[in-house]
Design a protein around this nucleic acid. Structure first.
Lengths: 139, 139
DNA sequence: TCAGCTATATGTAAAGTGCAGACATAGGGA
DNA sequence: TCCCTATGTCTGCACTTTACATATAGCTGA
């Protein structure tokens, strides 16, 4: 019977190592990027993906991008139409809706909070952290 | 048979809305926070959680924190022992290992990259983005 | 005795992502 | 013509992280 008893229990199991930073974009950031990419331009998925990779070092796979775009569309933040005018296969071109513009604004606010958070992390990491904490020093 | 054919297909299904920013901390950031909290101090889970909540506006639930700590321990980034000296129930006190210090450094580098990324997002959002892109303007 | 705070832990489900692969169109070369 | 490649979109699957609910236990004070 497992319990919260304080035994010197084992610390081992078969799992992927993950105290280390993840490879890709942090969870959900992709949505913010997709929305902001469509802020002034109407683009299709493949183009967005290429832009993100080449100009912003945001690396994601096609499946994730297309899936996220469809999700944004389902939720009413973007709308799309087919463009067959150009050479090659038809592209689904996306544009931001008013709701999408609002969502982007929310994202901007949220990401500002994240940045503040990051700054706190760094000040702690570099030892510049102040705040009155009369705790005991290490050892 | 579903295919990639360009039909004006439906965009609807039953799902949670998620073009909006997530509530909690972005993916995996918790690991970075736990490591950095232990940089100069030996703390137990409950204390870490309280610190994060009160001083850093990092809100997580106990289950997530304890689970993450055990994971970090399994992976060798932190070690723990039971402390029953103080009043109240025994606490599992954690300290950073050398591997944990290294991992924290990796996290710091990764988070710096994230911050650079965030800055790019904001410059795009505020319209300060430069870079030669001879694309067609919207509409 | 019993409520309430401290403290740790697990089960479960939801959500996001990476990887692999399918499918389609168009153009170029053999 | 046929095949190969680049462009473009989409789905299935497995894995990871997280939130929420819940269980357990020690200690303190009424």
């Amino acid at each position: 019977m497992p319990s919260a008893e304080h035994t010197e229990d084992d610390v081992s199991s078969g799992r992927a190592d993950s105290g280390l930073p993840p490879r890709g974009t942090p969870k959900n950031y992709l949505m913010a990027w997709l929305l902001v990419m469509l802020k002034d331009l109407n683009l299709h998925g493949y183009e967005i993906m290429k832009e993100l990779r080449e100009n912003f070092a945001v690396v994601t796979d096609p499946g994730t991008v297309y899936r996220a775009l469809r999700q944004l569309e389902r939720d009413g933040y973007i709308t799309s139409w087919w463009d067959s005018k150009e050479h090659g296969p038809a592209r689904r071109v996306y544009t931001l809706t008013d709701a999408g513009t609002d969502a982007l604004k929310l994202w901007s606010t949220a990401l500002e909070q994240y940045r503040t958070n990051l700054d706190a992390f760094f000040s702690l990491y570099t030892g510049t952290w102040v705040k009155d904490r009369p705790d005991s020093p290490k050892e």
